[in-house]
Design a binder for these strands. Structure first.
Length: 586
RNA sequence: GCGCCCGUAGCUCAGUUGGAUAGAGCGUUGGCCUCCGAAGCCAAAGGUCGUGAGUUCGAGUCUCGCCGGGCGCGCCA
């Protein structure tokens, strides 16, 4: 509807350019927007205001000229010029009636459009370290990333959903050591648990599996483990230095094969748990990309070599540095440590380089907002390697703060005191969780009211929207009870009977859906869709309270059924993109 | 200290890439079920858009300063 109108204006401007009434230079894009006030029509354009200076004419007078040049079509009722030079379009009822037809005909496909033209987009999200279960902070990234991916897919992009698995590096070694220490406890050894170890209960569970399957085959005397190690934090030492020493000692005592086994057991157990957790949450990936595979394939060294060829690598203090400050970063960054190990950043450079080598036209990363300082160095690396950094969009997601009975639920990652995503899903359900996570702008802090999410009342926006859907289903059931049938064709032919104010409001709301979907997708803002669905549900509830759908007049009844079923279809389509179910009965 | 994000109704937030008289929900107050589901609807009250300047036909929206809050500034990941 909007694009058709835009094309109409474009035609008018073309005509004016050919007759010399407008300069032939490139013109600004045609602004066209929904009016806030019905008195201003359905759509308003500020094109005359924008062109006035360029054309050296008065805005209002220019607006007159443009309006006169508009091709005549039957779906526009009239066009007015108002204020300083707004052009207001009043659409004719048939334009809105057509929306109902389109929705019922296209069904689940309605609202989709081919804008993306099959361009390949990668969306990487969550990517939490597999050192423990996902918590509620990851949940927001999951819901947000999955929805952005769905939205882009609806716009015709070819979307690849990916989880970057940090299966290499120090954190994973800490996990392996933690598991092993808990295992030793099960073997009857007494060892002080390291201050920097993973203390969550899930570590004990993994240790129990190891103990159950292999008995004492991985045991060593506690004295061998700690002999000669530097002091841990409680003893006045450095917990980082201590844990690193402990890891080294563990590898030595276990030998590489047995150490590897413990390491893999921890990694795989947790990764399986994360996979299952996300799957239950309705988040499905196309690929789980291993960080370890990057270095094993030599991709990390290749990336460093590439930066080296570009002349952006230098050596200092025994380490290799990337000259990121030459590309807008605050300072240069180490890619290879003094001890020869490459850094996490080096892996990330290689990973992002591969993303583009794999042929994606656009790459989207969803990060926790606390990583925002990391962005300049990643963009710097891409630029240095000759990749256009503008092809990478990083979306930052703020944390969600849980409230129960108005009181903030305390959470800290240390000491394992956090609420897991699984716990949240069990407490409030998947639908409210998915919806609440995306109902606010992602870069905004989210106050997640657990009691509200659980409440089955009008206060809960999820139920409010789902209720509108169930209501239409209920009407269809009632129709059968009364022994009537729905004649879609008859309703279709009599949509002009929909003349009530609430019906017109509903038609306008329905016609907005494709525009909302497009804006939400292109701006990566799922909350726009969530917001819209609430408005649509409200328009339906208002209508439903004021007028009966199942009236005696069969012609009017069918027209109203068509309208109601169109509403149901849009709610279903919209909720589906958000990963929320549309129940027929509640 | 430097960088990024955020300040809109009592609370939580929208505000259509600079447009016309700034909007929802919750909460408060008052109405609506002999009638398709009251998990619903309607109405009222509630605002110096943190603040001071600037840009222009026009600023909640863009620029700068200030105030207040969050995050980040590792040879960690």
């Amino acid at each position: 509807m909007k694009t058709q109108l835009q094309q109409l204006i474009e035609q008018a401007l073309q005509g004016l350019r050919q007759t010399g009434q407008l300069p032939a230079t490139t013109l600004p894009s045609i602004t066209l927007e929904r009016t806030r006030d019905r008195a201003h029509g359905d759509f308003a354009s500020t094109i005359a205001l924008a062109l006035a200076k360029l054309a050296r004419r008065q805005p209002r007078e220019l607006a007159q000229t443009i309006v006169a040049a508009l091709p005549a079509v039957d779906w526009i009722d009239r066009v007015e010029i108002a204020g300083p030079g707004f052009i207001n379009f009043f659409l004719a009822p048939p334009a809105y009636q057509q929306v109902v037809r389109d929705i019922l005909r296209q069904g689940d496909a309605y609202g989709r459009n081919p804008l993306g033209a099959g361009n390949r987009v990668q969306v990487e999200f969550v990517s939490a370290n597999p050192t423990g279960p996902l918590h509620v902070g990851h949940g927001r990234g999951a819901a947000f990333g999955a929805t952005v991916a769905n939205l882009l897919e609806a716009l015709g992009f070819q979307v690849h959903r990916e989880y970057y698995v940090n299966d290499a590096g120090r954190q994973m070694n800490i996990l392996a050591a933690s598991v092993w220490l808990r295992y030793l406890e099960l073997c009857g050894e007494t060892v002080a648990f390291p201050a920097n170890g993973y203390k969550g209960g899930y570590v004990r569970e993994i240790a129990a599996v190891l103990h159950g399957e292999h008995g004492a085959a991985y045991a060593v005397p506690a004295a061998d483990l700690t002999a000669g190690l530097p002091p841990d934090e409680p003893q006045g030492g450095d917990k980082e230095i201590y844990i690193d020493a402990l890891i080294e000692r563990s590898r030595t005592l276990l030998g590489e094969n047995r150490y590897r086994y413990v390491f893999e057991l921890g990694l795989n157990t947790i990764l399986d748990d994360i996979r299952e957790d996300l799957r239950e949450f309705g988040v499905i990936y196309d690929e789980w990309y291993s960080e370890r595979s990057l270095s094993e394939r030599g991709a990390v060294n290749k990336a460093i070599a590439r930066l080296h060829e570009a002349g952006q690598i230098y050596e200092k203090d025994g380490a290799l540095w990337f000259r990121s400050s030459a590309f807008g970063d605050e300072k240069d960054r180490v890619v290879q440590r003094e001890n020869g190990q490459t850094t996490y950043f080096a892996s990330d450079i290689a990973y992002h380089l591969e993303k583009f080598e794999r042929g994606f036209d656009r790459v989207i990363d969803v990060w926790g907002a606390d990583h925002h300082g990391y962005l300049p160095r990643v963009k710097a690396a891409l630029q240095a390697m000759g990749v256009d950094p503008a092809k990478l969009d990083v979306l930052l997601v703020q944390f969600a703060i849980l409230y129960r009975q108005g009181i903030r639920v305390p959470m800290s990652t240390r000491a394992g005191e956090f609420v897991t995503l699984r716990e949240l899903r069990q407490e409030v359900g998947n639908d409210p969780a998915r919806f609440f996570y995306v109902m606010r702008k992602s870069e905004q802090h989210l106050d997640f009211d657990l009691d509200l999410a659980k409440s089955q009342s009008r206060d809960n926006p999820v139920y409010y929207i789902q209720y509108a859907h169930a209501r239409v289903c209920s009407v269809m059931g009632k129709l059968r009870e009364k022994g009537w049938t729905w004649d879609e064709a008859r309703g279709d032919a009599n949509l002009s009977r929909l003349v009530e104010a609430q019906e017109e409001a509903l038609l306008v709301a329905l016609s907005r859906y494709p525009e909302v979907l497009e804006a939400a997708a292109l701006q990566y803002e799922p909350h726009q869709l969530a917001q819209y669905l609430r408005e649509l549900a409200n328009a339906f509830h208002t209508y439903y309270n004021e007028h009966r759908v199942l009236v005696e007049d069969g012609v009017l009844r069918d027209a109203r059924l068509n309208l109601s079923l169109a509403v149901r279809q849009i709610i279903r389509n919209g909720l589906s993109l958000l990963g929320v179910s549309a129940p027929e009965v509640m």
